[in-house]
C-alpha cells in the first residue's frame, strides 16, 4: 500500500489503538476498562497490543456489567484519572446511562467546577447482521444531554484524531464508531494530530446540494455522490464528526451556497440528528429545500434482506437528492 508523505495507511481499528496507546504512554492516568479489552484486544481488535504494553492494571477486563463499568470509569475520572470505557455495542450503553447522564454530564456544573469527569465512553453503533438489539444508532439520544460531548468519526484519520482529543477533553465524551468502519483503511498522519471537537469538515466539495451526515454514512453519501456526478449532479458532503456540540456553522455555510440540504443518518429520523441539523441550519440561512434520510421506523433485523430494507443506502440518498432538487 502506498501512502502520502507524512502519513501511514491504517485500518480504522489500528487508528483507535494507536491513539489510545499514545495517550496511555503520555499520561499514566489514562486507563482502559471494558469487556474483552485485555489480552483479547477488544471485540474489533481496537485495543490490540495495549494489554501487552501497559499491563492488566491499566487495561482492565470487566464482567458484563455496563452500569458498574461506566460508573467505575466516571468515578475514577472524577477522582483524577482519564478512563476509556468500552461498551461493545451501543445498544448496551443504555444499561450504563445513569452514571454517564446523571453523574458525569453534570459533575462539573453541580459542583461549581470542583469536580470534572473526563471519561471517554467508546461504543460501536450500526447494522452488520447482528439483529434488533445489536444494530442501533442511538447517538441522537445523547445530543440532548447538556454536558456530554458526542463524536462519531467516519475514517481512520478522525478515529485517531478524535480519540486523541476525547482523551484530552476535561469532561465526558461518547465516542461512537461503527461496525462497518473497522475493516476500512485510511491515511493517518505520522505526526501526532488532534481532530478538534466541535468541527465538521467538508469531505467533498459540490454545488447543487449539501449532504450532512456522520460515521459510516459518510461513505454511503460518497457512493451516492459518485453516481450522481455521472448524471451532472454535484453534491457537497459535510462530515459532522462531532454531534454535540454540533458545528452548525459549517453546514449552514455549505447550505447557504447550495440552498438544498439532505441529512443522512443510519438511526431513526424521529428527533434524529437530521431533524436537529435541518432546523438549526434553517435558523441561520432561512428556508431551504430539505430531505431527511434515515432508517425505517422499525427494528433492524439480522435477516440480510430486512436489514438492507431498514437502513439507508446510496440509492435512497440519490432519491432524496433528486427529490430536493426537483422541488
Amino acid at each position: 500500500m502506498s501512502s502520502e508523505a507524512g502519513a501511514i495507511k491504517l485500518f480504522f481499528r489500528e487508528a483507535i489503538a494507536r491513539a489510545v496507546r499514545e495517550e496511555m504512554a503520555a499520561d499514566a492516568r489514562v486507563i482502559v476498562l471494558g469487556q474483552d479489552v485485555g489480552a483479547f484486544g477488544g471485540a474489533y481488535k481496537e485495543f490490540h497490543g495495549l494489554y501487552d504494553q501497559f499491563g492488566a492494571s491499566r487495561v482492565r477486563d470487566t464482567p458484563v456489567a455496563e452500569a458498574a463499568m461506566v460508573g467505575l470509569g466516571v468515578g475514577a475520572a472524577a477522582a483524577g484519572y482519564r478512563p476509556i470505557v468500552s461498551i461493545t455495542y451501543m445498544d448496551f450503553l443504555m444499561l450504563g446511562l445513569d452514571p454517564l447522564v446523571n453523574y458525569a454530564a453534570k459533575a462539573r456544573f453541580k459542583t461549581g467546577g470542583q469536580v470534572t469527569a473526563p471519561v471517554v465512553v467508546k461504543t460501536t453503533a450500526g447494522a452488520k447482521g447482528q439483529g434488533v438489539a445489536h444494530s442501533q444508532c442511538l447517538e441522537a439520544w445523547l445530543m440532548g444531554v447538556a454536558g456530554l460531548v458526542v463524536v462519531a468519526p467516519s475514517n481512520a484519520a478522525d478515529a485517531y484524531g478524535l480519540m486523541k482529543s476525547a482523551l484530552r477533553h476535561d469532561g465526558p465524551v461518547v465516542f461512537v464508531d461503527h461496525k462497518r468502519l473497522f475493516p476500512t483503511a485510511g491515511e493517518v498522519p505520522l505526526a501526532q494530530t488532534f481532530t478538534p471537537i466541535g468541527q465538521a469538515v467538508i469531505r467533498r466539495p459540490g454545488e447543487h446540494v449539501t449532504i450532512a451526515t456522520h460515521g459510516y454514512m459518510v461513505r454511503v453519501a460518497g457512493e451516492a455522490a459518485d453516481r450522481l456526478a455521472k448524471a451532472g449532479v454535484s453534491c457537497e458532503i459535510v462530515d459532522l464528526r462531532t454531534l454535540a456540540p454540533l458545528d452548525v456553522a459549517t453546514v449552514a455555510g455549505s447550505v447557504a451556497r447550495t440552498r438544498a440540504l439532505v441529512t443522512l443518518e443510519e438511526g431513526q429520523l424521529a428527533c434524529g440528528v437530521g431533524a436537529e441539523v435541518a432546523f438549526r441550519v434553517q435558523e441561520q440561512v432561512g428556508a431551504v429545500r430539505i430531505a431527511r434520510v434515515g432508517a425505517l421506523p422499525a427494528p433492524v433485523s439480522s435477516n440480510p434482506v430486512l436489514e438492507a430494507a431498514a437502513i439507508p443506502d446510496a440509492a435512497r440518498v440519490m432519491d432524496a437528492v433528486r427529490r430536493v432538487l426537483d422541488a
Binding site: A68, G71, L72, G75, A76, A79, D98, P99, N102, Y103
Partner: peptide, 21 residues
C-alpha cells in the same frame, strides 16, 4: 467527594474513586 441524589447512583462512582485510590 460528594452526595448524589440518584438512589444507588453513587455506589459505582465510589468504586471508581476507590479504583483511583
Amino acid at each position: 467527594f460528594g452526595a448524589h441524589a440518584v438512589v444507588a447512583g453513587n455506589i459505582s462512582i465510589a468504586a471508581g474513586a476507590a479504583l483511583a485510590a
